[in-house]
Design a binder for these strands. Structure first.
Lengths: 338, 338
DNA sequence: TTGAAAGCGCTAACAT
DNA sequence: ATGTTAGCGCTTTCAA
């Protein structure tokens, strides 16, 4: 593989001049720039990233930390991040917990310390104190998508408001017996969303003077399967006779729709269902949801982190709130049983 | 951040001894290894990856090239790859085309040439001649998941056989008017699967003496939405009266199920539907499918590439065929109209 | 505007 | 079994 010495020789200059020409330094003659660029072109020269990094301290590489790549939300945010990063010539290192706490630990005790990345984007992870310490010691910009993370910049939707909005939608349709399908213990550990959305639901109910017993909460793991099981439990209990279900994610809401159908219930005539996310599939299920735009959020996240990298090092931590939108489709309707 | 000199000083040895101790070289006294490990531990020392790479030529980093991270199949394969790689202490660089040909081009003309990765795993991408050249010149092990890729090791299912198996299942149930929902022009460019699966379908039909007119093929883009649209077209045409649909992926098959329902048709009484993949959601739709196990395939792919890295450099290109399984559920039944 | 030389932080070859 | 020295391939002072 051609090195910078080869390029320099072919262009008839020294290695340092070649380096300057390639990196767009100011005081290089136009003619030299042209010849060096041409030489690099013909030799197919691309600088070795490790040598570049060792010399400059810069990696041109961003780390993305998330718990489950294979899930729609995370994959979509990641796609958005990645597309912007590539455009900017940045590589992307993926740190996926795979739902494993050992892997999660190794990311912070080992992988991140290798200094392979210039900055970090975390997606919907609830960082522990020790993990935060690691990030601070690293001294690299951190952007938390689906935050907030204390001391780091964040890009997030108002999860509390989103849950409240979804619940208010059901309340405004005359429902009052509204079950919550929310995060279980395991997802509480991983993400920030479960408890915040839970809170939004409770506040909306309280605002309408509804006292919510613990028995109205059905924990699930944020998957279609989890939502299906939770909804089946919720809807089969004869003592509770819910007319509506609020699921803290679209995947759980879709599971709930399928569960209702399998129980012989009609949606929305017998039970109204609303979710949060704006999942690709929500349109096909006619799911009423509070939509966010994960792909666009990802792209924005990449822009923000690149700005932090180019701007002054000691930039303030920013908190960007991404807009959400209630999309009413056909899984919710007025409560006629009331 | 602590460097190896700091560790060496604290342990009372030279930098090279510290390096050897940390990297598990043979002739180091047990006592020295212990002291160095302890020093590294207390200082929180982790070797800088760029310095390590520059000195050794090794990255401990694997590149993964794929077209759409946010889609279930790719995300799941990626999760499988990633989990094994992390266990082995390897980083993962993601090169996602994002369905963009410019991004695809830049991966091969720029990103891969930075020598950030020791080896490459491609997932279901159909490589062009020029792209293959780049990989060969790189001289790094390449493993194609969902191959085959000429000259590279592969890990794949028998796509032709899978499609044939799915089609034969429908034929054995007495269906003969079987439409194909397969890849469109765009997906033909990106992946290998579309045309191979198309071929399997045709051969099964031919084996049963059925002449398949072009009008029985409905192109789609491998998404639920694409499958939905294609199925709607296929099932609404009064002149064709299909009793069964074979979709070349589960996501398209799920779209087909939803389309059939929206047309007021019962599945499987009015139309049988079968897919390929073993998608997480296929169980909820009762979808009959030919299952592969993307996550396990990903894990295996990581193992294979790590073996290639540790073994002799000039290892033979291997071709591993992953087993598939017909999973019969409730979207297919005997053809009663015949 | 350009070249020579030093140095980024590590590992490996060469001594001992 | 361990220390000394050179060098991986770049960028960046320092000089000119």
């Amino acid at each position: 593989m051609a090195g910078i010495e080869d390029v320099a020789r072919l262009a008839g200059v020294s290695a340092s001049t070649a380096s300057r020409a390639l990196n767009g330094h100011p005081r290089i003659s136009a003619e030299t720039v042209r010849r060096v660029a041409e030489a690099a072109q013909t030799l197919g020269y691309v600088a070795s990233s490790s040598a570049y990094t060792l010399a400059t301290g810069r990696n041109r590489n961003i780390g993305v930390v998330l718990p489950y790549v294979e899930r729609w939300y995370f994959g979509t945010v990641l796609a958005g991040i990645d597309s912007r990063l590539m455009q900017a010539g940045y590589d992307l290192s993926l740190y996926n917990f795979n739902g494993s706490s050992e892997q999660r630990a190794s990311v912070f005790t080992d992988f991140l310390l290798r200094r392979r990345v210039d900055a970090l984007i975390t997606v919907a992870v609830k960082l522990e104190a020790g993990e935060l310490d690691v990030l601070h010691r690293l001294g690299k910009p951190v952007l938390a998508v689906g935050g907030p993370v204390p001391g780091a910049s964040t890009l997030r939707i108002d999860d509390f408001g989103a849950a409240k909005l979804a619940t208010l939608h059901l309340l405004s349709l005359g429902h009052s017996r509204i079950a919550l399908i929310g995060g279980d213990a395991a997802s509480e550990m991983d993400f920030r969303q479960p408890e915040t959305r839970h809170g939004g639901y409770l506040e909306a109910m309280a605002d309408h003077g509804i006292d919510v017993p613990d028995s109205w909460f059905f924990p699930a793991d944020f998957t279609v399967g989890g939502g299906y099981a939770a909804a089946k439990t919720a809807l089969s209990d004869p003592r509770l006779s819910f007319t509506a279900l609020f699921a803290a994610s679209d995947e759980m809401a879709i599971g709930a729709v399928l569960a209702a159908r399998d129980l012989g219930m009609r949606v929305p005539e017998d039970v109204s269902i609303v979710g949060i996310d704006g999942h690709d599939l929500s349109e096909f299920f006619g799911l009423t949801t509070v939509a966010q735009a994960p792909r666009d959020q990802g792209a924005r996240a990449a822009d923000l982190i690149l700005e932090a990298l180019s701007g002054g090092e000691a930039a303030e931590a920013t908190d960007t709130v991404w807009p959400i939108e209630l999309v009413v489709r056909s899984t919710t309707t007025r409560n006629h049983g009331a």
